[in-house]
Design a protein around this nucleic acid. Structure first.
Length: 781
DNA sequence: CGTACTAGTCTTTTT
DNA sequence: GACTAGTACG
């Protein structure tokens, strides 16, 4: 290492002024506001290296928390490359894996076993389903999803079942959720299982209940660094606060403009109020961008400027303006996909870039399919990141459930999953009987199964099958000590004939077998690399893998992923597909009465735009199929927020849209065939809540009838809403009429409003509906 | 007990 | 349109 004037080490010389300050401010609380592409990771890596090389900090005392395992791996590698020795004793990990590591050591202090299992979303769902059945709560009244997301939000805010119950007095629905929350926690505890949120919550609980454990980690982690700080939630903040409380050497790095995980509990005030919590915090802004061209940055700045309540900053670069941004609106989503693939192919033919330089970003995973088809058609290599997580595929979950059962037999979800996979002739009735027995006796399902012969209602034959299964697992429990994980999986596959079953029953057996092979490879590499090799740690390792983590460094394929997935990445050539109001920003954000929803989408747009280094292409389709219905969408408002001189094509003017139905009595989705006013074509309904239903349809101004903006929200959306009143109705109060969807009913009320008649109909089977005459198209019978 | 069909729900985004 | 849960039947 070269030393200049005995002051700076050589590698720090490569930093700009702000970066240098950030890398050398080591003691006390530090907030680094790092704009997109401002060399944040570089700064972090140099900062750590500087601490070790120049400040005499022991690597062992450094904790770096990142968002994904992939980011953690990259950071470790880069630190390794510039630090002489000892880099491997730095603790670099994600929040979740850090918590697992801590909990595996100390969770017995708060009453769990160290071989706890981790429940993913599927597991949570099946637990909740069981509970709701048991407590006889109708899933039509309360959906599992709703309950689980309420619980998750509570945990993000460190609200336990007691406090939750306190907070919801008087609200029946919430009281039910409180009851379910409590039952859910009890069930998880009994199954010795934690869900993702629990990993954080229980670690905080552990630190609060066991000061000596906390002190131990405070001493160890004297220097803490948190990346993507804008995405931390309240629980994570508290965790960090506790850890840093003793030495207060806490460095957080983030960008409030890139906060895109509010739906997951991210609390943007963590970053906005950092200086309030740590008044002596040093704040450093990194605004010079080393990634993109000025045109791209100008576009990003222009878009994000429309948000209020952000820390003011503006990216700049000395790279030069570069190409204009490309914007294309195609007729359909197919043409859009085709355009993207063709445009990319052309660039590659020209030698402008390789496949690996290109990424296509979209708002929802569902958009990937059409794009994939386009790439397949042209035989272009691509990689889809996200969608169904590898480890949540059926065949993988089955095998993991075997391992979980062997490792932690009280994990009822795992046991029930495999008790009849492959088929052992143990049916639902038997499973229910055993479940009931387990519940009555306060034991786990597996324990109950082992005493099957004592359970009323379980036939001799069924009991034999059950004990057969129990013996089978128990045998493995002994054998597992002597076997590698790879051998264990192989053996299970063999003894269960799993592969043959697959071949016999599944259409896509080959693909599934490949997946299983990949799981086995994962097991092998885990056993080679992991510090602690046992079943529990393998299972948690696997549970915490994000899809992005599996994206290798191979630079030979086009990457397809959601805008969320793209955070932290960069590509020379980026396509943003589906730039339409209703897709991006999503319909739910547009119609939400909370305006910050749109701001979050806008931040997502900012993230997307700033992924591009050289060339950015934004595409939209005039019509696309969504949930089986064709929608006609406007160009995304975010495209219109980009100054026209930065685009190679002007976005078309807001198309007037015709309108809609409006049914205040129900939030049901309504499909809407053809316009009622002689306008041809079909519209569809979107906007699941609030302004209820809105139908949009492509139309020319001449075709449009007078419009009424029924609500401010709709006019904000660039969509207008209107109806045309007919002179008279063919039916009157008391008449029997039919409705295309609701069937036959009796008209109970007709109110004449300025623009239309509001008709109340008491349907024979669908109940009472209030609707506007122009849309209801009621026919007298 | 297992299979085949039907009806309902769903989509924002993920560690 | 796709997937899943629930139901009816063999």
């Amino acid at each position: 290492m070269v030393s200049f004037n005995g002051k700076k080490m050589g590698y720090l010389d490569t930093l700009n002024n702000e970066q240098y300050i950030a890398a050398t401010t080591v003691d006390g609380p530090v907030l680094i506001l790092a704009g997109a592409g401002s060399g944040k990771t570089r700064v972090l890596v140099h900062r750590i290296a500087n601490m070790i090389d120049n400040m005499g900090v022991n690597p062992w005392n450094i904790l770096a928390i990142t968002f994904t395992n992939k980011a953690a791996g990259e950071m470790r590698e880069r630190v390794d490359n510039i630090v002489g020795a000892g880099a491997d004793s730095i603790w670099v990990s994600t929040f979740h894996s850090m918590c697992v590591r801590i909990l595996r050591r100390h969770i017995d202090c708060i009453g769990y076993d160290s071989n706890f299992t981790i429940y993913d979303t599927d597991d949570q769902k099946s637990v909740m389903k069981d509970i709701m059945k048991r407590l006889e709560i109708d899933t039509k009244f309360l959906k599992e999803r709703t309950v689980l997301s309420a619980i998750s939000s509570a945990k993000d805010e460190l609200i336990d079942p007691d406090e939750f119950e306190e907070n919801c007095k008087g609200d029946y629905k919430k009281e039910q959720i409180a009851k379910l929350y409590r039952a859910y926690q009890e069930t998880c505890k009994q199954s010795n299982a934690l869900d993702f949120d629990d990993l954080i919550v229980k670690t905080v609980e552990l630190f609060e209940k066991c000061p000596e454990v906390l002190n131990n980690y405070q001493e160890r982690f004297r220097y803490i660094c948190v990346d993507e700080y804008q995405d931390t939630n309240t629980a994570q903040f508290e965790l960090i606060r506790l850890l840093a409380d003793k030495y207060k050497n806490l460095c957080v790095v983030g960008d409030d403009d890139q906060s895109i995980y509010k739906f997951r509990g991210a609390n943007i005030s963590n970053i906005l109020d950092f200086e309030k919590v740590y008044p002596d915090a040093k704040v450093i802004k990194l605004e010079q961008n080393y990634r993109s061209t000025q045109n791209i940055l100008d576009a990003a700045n222009a878009v994000i400027r429309n948000n209020v309540g952000r820390k003011d900053k503006s990216l700049w670069t000395d790279r030069g303006s570069g190409e204009k941004l490309h914007y294309r609106q195609l007729e359909t989503a197919y043409e859009e996909a085709d355009y993207i693939a063709a445009d990319m192919a052309k660039a590659i033919r020209n030698g402008d870039c390789g496949y690996g330089d290109c990424a296509v970003l979209y708002r929802t995973n569902a958009q990937s399919r059409i794009l994939e088809e386009a790439f397949v058609k042209r035989s272009m290599p691509y990689n889809v990141v996200g969608g169904v997580n590898f480890y949540s595929r059926k065949e993988i979950k089955d095998i993991l459930a075997y391992l979980k059962t062997i490792d932690n037999a009280v994990d009822d979800v795992a046991v029930k999953r495999i008790i009849n996979v492959p088929k052992r002739g143990i049916g639902q009735t038997t499973v229910n009987r055993v479940s009931d027995y387990a519940l009555q006796n306060g034991i786990g399902f597996f324990a109950a199964a082992s005493m099957a012969d004592r359970i009323d209602g379980v036939s001799k034959a069924a009991a034999t099958k059950l004990t057969g299964f129990v013996d089978y697992i128990n045998e493995y429990r002994d054998k597992a000590q002597m076997m590698s994980i790879e051998q264990l999986i192989d053996d299970i596959l063999k003894t269960t004939d799993y592969i043959d079953e697959l071949k016999a029953n599944e259409e896509d057996a080959d693909e599934r077998i490949e997946n299983i092979d990949e799981l086995i490879s994962k097991a092998v590499s885990f056993e080679e690399e992991a510090e602690e090799v046992n079943l529990s740690s393998f299972l948690s390792d696997v549970a915490l893998v994000a899809d992005i983590d599996r994206l290798g460094d191979e630079q030979t394929k086009v990457v397809l992923m959601t805008l969320h997935g793209a955070k932290g990445l960069e590509f020379p050539r980026v396509y943003i597909a589906g730039a339409e109001d209703g897709v991006f920003p999503s319909a739910s954000a547009i119609f939400d009465e909370d305006p910050t929803q749109i701001e979050e989408e806008r931040r997502l747009a900012y993230v997307g735009i700033t992924r591009a280094k050289d060339v950015l292409t934004i595409t939209a389709a005039r019509q696309r199929m969504l949930r089986g219905e064709t929608q006609y969408n406007q160009v995304s408002r975010f495209v219109r927020e980009i100054p026209e001189e930065l685009l190679d094509n002007r976005p078309e003017k807001v198309r007037r849209m015709d309108i809609m139905e409006y049914d205040e009595s129900s939030s049901e989705r309504m499909s809407f065939k053809a316009a009622p006013f002689g306008i041809t074509g079909a519209g569809s309904v979107y906007g699941m809540s609030r302004p209820k239903a809105v139908v949009t349809k492509k139309t020319t101004p001449q075709e449009c009838k007078p419009y009424i903006a029924k609500t401010g929200l709709l006019s904000n959306a660039g969509i207008q809403k209107g109806v045309v009143k007919s002179d008279s109705l063919e039916y009157a109060e008391g008449d029997r009429v039919t409705h295309i969807k609701y069937g036959v009913g009796t008209v109970t009320k007709i109110e004449s409003e300025p623009r239309d008649y509001k008709v109340t109909v008491d349907f024979d089977s669908a109940g009472t509906k209030i609707m506007y005459a122009a849309f209801a198209k009621l026919v007298k019978i």
